[in-house]
Write a protein that binds this DNA or RNA. Structure first.
Lengths: 287, 287
DNA sequence: GACCTGTGATACCCGGGAGGTATCACAGGC
DNA sequence: GCCTGTGATACCTCCCGGGTATCACAGGTC
C-alpha cells in the first residue's frame, strides 16, 4: 500500500502536465475513461486529493504538485535504471560493471577542453569507450537523471549541479559576439548593459522546452543559425570565452567586464560506482 | 518497452539481495514460481542477462549489479513520492505545498545545535511544524532518499552528502571518552593511534546494516549501552566534541589531536521546492 | 550406485483488474 | 433552445499476475 506502480505515476504525471484528461489519454495511447478511473483510484489509495476538477479544466492541488515533482524524479530514476542496465548488459566483460560511458556535452561548447579530455583519457590503461552525446540547450541534467548519459560537462550558471557530484574544470569570462562592422565592435571591452541595450541588435532567443521566450530578438534553434544572423548584422550574442574557436571572419569578439564567469564542471550521478567513470573524472581533474 | 513497473524492480532487487529465489519469494509474500517467471520475463524484456543461475545459488552479472543499484534508487524515489505526497495532502493549506517538515537527526548528536535551530526557526513567521525524526546509525541519507525525511542534520565524514544539497553549519574536533579512572584519562590530549591501540579497552562495534563488523570490542546498539560500558571500564569511544553534553560523571573526555574534524551540515534532496524548507535552511545558515 | 535434498524451471489453472465502448451529467456559448 | 466539450459512470472482455502441482537436475550421504 505504500508503493506506486510506475504506470500510475506515468498516468498522473501526464494528466498533471496536460491538465486535461482527454489529451493526456491520447498522449498515453489509451482511452479517457480508464485514465480517469486510474487517477481516482490513485487518489483513494493515497488518501489525498491530487486534482481539483471544476467542470472545465483541471488544476493541481498542493499535494498534486508535490507528486508531480517527485513522480517525475521517480520515473526518471526508473528509466535510468533500464537504460544503464541495458548499456551494461551489452559489454559485460571484465574490468567492472560498465565499459562504455556516455558523455553529454552541450553541442559546440568547450570544444578544446573536450578534445584534451578525450585525448588524455584515451591514454589511460583499460580506458572505456566514450560516446559523446550532444545535448540540447541545457538538458545535460535531464540526460544524467534519466540515464541517457553517465557523465556530463556542465556550465554554471547555465546548468544546475543540484543532485550531482561534480568537479570543477575551468573558469572563463564571457564575450559579446558582434557583427564585425558594428560600432561597438571597435571597443576593447563592453558591459552587459551595453550589449543588451543595443536598439538595432536585439538579443537572440533560444528555444526553451520547445517554446521561445517572448521578446524582440530572432528565434534561434542552433548555433549556425545564430552565427549567420550575427554575421548578417541582425543580432548579438553573449558566449563563454571558448566560443572564440568557432567565430567567423565577419564576427568580432569583445570581452564583457561584468558578465558572470562561466565555470565548466564535469558532473555525474551521485551514487555512481564505475571504475571507468572514476578514471575519467580523475583524468579530467588533472587537465 | 523502456519502462519498468516498480513491482518488477522490487522483485529483482529482492532476488538480487537474497541471491535465492525461494527466500526472496518468501520475503515478497508470494510463491517461488511466479517470481522465477517474472525475473525471466524481465531479462527478456531488457534483453540482458541479470543473474547467473548455476544450479545452487545465484550470482549477479555486471548488468545485474547495475540494476540492483539503479533499481534501489528508483524504488526509493517512488516510495519518497508517496510519502511526501501523503504528507503534503494532510495539510494542504496556504503558504506553499507543504507545511510540515520532517528533520532527521542522528539520535543524541548535535543536541545543542538542534535546540538552537528549532528555537530560531520557531520565531520565523509562518514557520512550519518541525517533526524531529531520530535516525539510526548514519541512516539520514536513506531517510532523505525514501521520503521519510525532508531535511537532515548530517555529519561528515560519517554521512555522505552525495546527491544532496547542503549547507555547512559547524565544525568540531573529536574527543576520546574514557573511563574516569583510566591512566590515559589524565592526559591533556591523545592521538587516534593511542586510543585504538589500548589493549585492555577495545573500541566498541556498532551495528551496520543489521550486522556487526568483526573485532574484539563489545557489540553496541545504542548510546546508553555504550555510555554504561565506558563507565564500567570496558571500552573507549571516539565522538565529536558536542558529545560532552551527555557525559556521565564516570566519564572523562580527552581531545584527540589527529582525528578528522567533524562537520555538521544541514542537507536536503536537491530538487526540493518548499518555502518552509527554504526558511529552515536560511535560519540554520544564520546560526 | 541408489536415494534423498534442495534448487530453479515448467505446466496448467483461475480471478482480478486494466483497458475498451457506450453513455451520462453538467457547464457555457452562440 | 441546442450544441459542444468536459470528466464520470456502467458494463463487458480478456490478459496477465499469481497460485498449486510437478519436473529436472546437481550434490551429498550411506
Amino acid at each position: 500500500m505504500d508503493t506506486l506502480e510506475t504506470r500510475e505515476l506515468r498516468y498522473f504525471v501526464t494528466v498533471a502536465e496536460e491538465l486535461h484528461f482527454g489529451r493526456a489519454a491520447e498522449r498515453l495511447g489509451m482511452a479517457q475513461p480508464p485514465l480517469s478511473r486510474a487517477i481516482q483510484q490513485l487518489e483513494r489509495r493515497l488518501g489525498v486529493r491530487l486534482l481539483e476538477r471544476d467542470r472545465r479544466g483541471v488544476t493541481l492541488t498542493g499535494a498534486g504538485e508535490v507528486l508531480l515533482h517527485e513522480g517525475r524524479a521517480a520515473l526518471d530514476a526508473a528509466t535510468a535504471a533500464v537504460r544503464r542496465t541495458r548499456r551494461a548488459g551489452g559489454a559485460d566483460g571484465p574490468g567492472g560493471p560498465r565499459d562504455r560511458l556516455v558523455l553529454a556535452v552541450k553541442a559546440g561548447a568547450s570544444h578544446e577542453l573536450l578534445h584534451k579530455l578525450l585525448d588524455a583519457y584515451a591514454a589511460v590503461p583499460d580506458a572505456a569507450e566514450i560516446e559523446v552525446a550532444p545535448s540540447g540547450t541545457c538538458e545535460q541534467g535531464e540526460m544524467l537523471r534519466d540515464g541517457r548519459a553517465d557523465v556530463a560537462l556542465m556550465h554554471t550558471p547555465f546548468n544546475s549541479l543540484a543532485g550531482f557530484d561534480s568537479e570543477e574544470l575551468m573558469t572563463e569570462g564571457q564575450i559579446a559576439i558582434l557583427p564585425a562592422g558594428h560600432p561597438l565592435a571597435a571597443r576593447g571591452t563592453l558591459t552587459l548593459a551595453e550589449v543588451t541595450g543595443i536598439p538595432d541588435l536585439p538579443l537572440a532567443r533560444w528555444a526553451r522546452d520547445g517554446a521561445y521566450p517572448p521578446g524582440p530578438g530572432p528565434e534561434i534553434r542552433d548555433q549556425t543559425q545564430l552565427a549567420q544572423l550575427i554575421a548578417l548584422g541582425r543580432t548579438v550574442a553573449v558566449f563563454p570565452d571558448s566560443a572564440r574557436s568557432w567565430l567567423w571572419a565577419e564576427h568580432t569578439a569583445v570581452p564583457l567586464t561584468d558578465a558572470p564567469p562561466v565555470v565548466t564542471h564535469i558532473a555525474w550521478p551521485a551514487h555512481s560506482r564505475s571504475l571507468a567513470l572514476a578514471d575519467l573524472i580523475r583524468t579530467a581533474a588533472r587537465l
